[in-house]
Amino acid sequence: MPTLAISFRNVFYTYPGNEDYTLRDVSFDVALGSTAVILGGSGSGKSTILKLVLGLIKPESGVIEVGGVDISGLQESALMPVRAGIGMVFQEGALFDSLSVAENVGFRLREHDKLDEQEFEERVSRLLGFVELGKFYDRAPSDLSGGQRRRVSVARAMAHSPGLILYDEPTTGLDPITGSTICDLIVKLRDLEGVTSVLVTHQLRDAFQVVQSFVMRKNGAFIYNRIEDVELLVGSEFIVLNEGRIVFRGLQRELFRSDEPYVRKFLDGQIPVSVIETEGD
């Protein structure tokens, strides 16, 4: 039984036609049940990591293991069982325009599990209920707002109950309140469904919300709490990427204390200095 959901060892990657490496010598692990937050500016290679985990692209060199399976050299057909254990929330949602919301959410159920119509409807309604979009069952994706599209995308990613969900900038381009509801969903999936999460983002506020919050179910309602004391946070690791290299790996308190120039610049640019000083010292 593997204890690591994801393991990268000395991974290098270049996009076809590019001369520079998009990822250089990237190594990290994500333990089962934990949350990894990958931070970095645009073009730092964050999303490339998620594509590599799914096997959508192949590393130039290095080893990538997902659930204990080395996927670096696997053919497309051999990757399908690996992908069955992964859900992915794409930037902007990547919903299928030609299908209704329900058909999007139940896409995998239709393709792989031969469910009868009633079972399909029940499963999809439950999933849409989880993301609080039950009313939108028959709507077309084009009728949805940006936040609603991301929520449908979350429902689609969790439809086959994967053990690992990858979030590619799930809150980018959303207003803070909608972004916060997406973060709550990520927390809910992690705490109530035991899903290992990898969150790629450049929004520190959202990353901290995911890492610091936890949710409990009480009398049918969801109760959210937030741990303000960063010293207590141990389950989630931060990875900071700059120009394809990992420049930082560690917990949130270590992130605040880091002297690495890019990390400092990244933190200073995004959150008030006073917060870093009081929480970091």
């Binding site: 799914l54 057909s77 859900g87 794409f90 990547a94």
Partner: peptide
């Protein structure tokens, strides 16, 4: 082409469909 640039092809592959 639109499916490629809006990542729908990637989504299809990630959902286990060729």
């Amino acid at each position: 082409g639109s499916m490629v640039v809006t990542q729908q092809i990637d989504a299809l592959r990630s959902l286990g469909t060729d």
